[in-house]
Amino acid sequence: MTELFKPSRRSILTLAAGAAATPFAPAILRAQQASGTVVMSTWGGDYAKLLTQNIDNPLLKPKGIEVVQDAGTEPTRVAKAIAQRRLPRGSVDVISVQAPAAFDLEEAGMLEPLDESKVPNLKYVQKTFATPYSIPHIYSPQVIAYSPERVKEPPKSFSDLTSERYVGKVGILDNSYIWVAMAAALKEQGDAGKIAEVKAVMEKLIKSGAKTYTSTEAFAPGIKSGEIDVGLVWFARVLFWSKGGVEMKAAFPAEGCLTYVSSMAVLKNAPNKAAAFAYLNAALEPAAQRGFADSMGYHPTITNAALEGDVAQRLALPEPAPKLIPAPYPQLSAVRDDMNDWWRRLLERR
């Protein structure tokens, strides 16, 4: 019996080597496994198409990583991820959501922590947008879109939208009203997080006849037909619509621009984490970032993807650069349900 447990010098050495290697086990595993299939939960349409064109095909395919897209609306995909959270192996590796939703997923304890050992390109991420649980994929500042034909003097700040000049001529996108509320909070309260404090401002806007659009696409015809003159939208949208022939310009509010950030994160129960990290890293490659800037008008989130030529000109931010302000995620998360309910009632009461 004792013979059986008697440790030999060799076995002790083997054990010691094993113990010493344990901290590096994930890295070794990663080096071995960054291949196979990675499931990407994403929006459909143009975004999904551009992911394939700029990330999947040129950057991951050569590495032997095949990307399968699980396309759908953000709430549906988030619901699916939440429903699967108890499974040891989920069906999704990388989830692509707006930054506020990424914050919620992190709060629910569902996201894999990220660092430079997993995603080396994290070191190039602009500090404003960095989080320990997700990568910022693309961003776009919120601007005041206006019709240059009817608005001779460009608006300078959020307050202009509530002035007499634009009564009944302000357009609000119903699905991003909360971003308008945050812009109001930034200007009126000096803090974009004081969202509930600007209900009166929003109420004034609605009561004075601001138009609400249920689809983002309806904003451009609103400007074109003269139904509205101004409204808060993402800069990328203004670029997209101007490219499509709608007379529209962007003014950057002096108090700063709330900023749309589209995030990517790895779920804790991702079946292929190594490939998921490789995906995130590829998304932060300058070439991939430039591709999105060129086609969709969204800005790169990294410091080493300077734009050139025509794209640089189109996407240029004014001098001095406007202050870019990501949404105050914790405050937003805390009030969003109540705000949504309040907003519905406000609209209904007319």
């Binding site: 119903d174 609400t212 659009y213 249920t214 519905r344 609209l347 209904e348 007319r350």
Partner: peptide, 8 residues
């Protein structure tokens, strides 16, 4: 589509 955000 026809009722928009303000018609529930």
């Amino acid at each position: 589509l026809l009722g928009g955000a303000r018609f529930q």
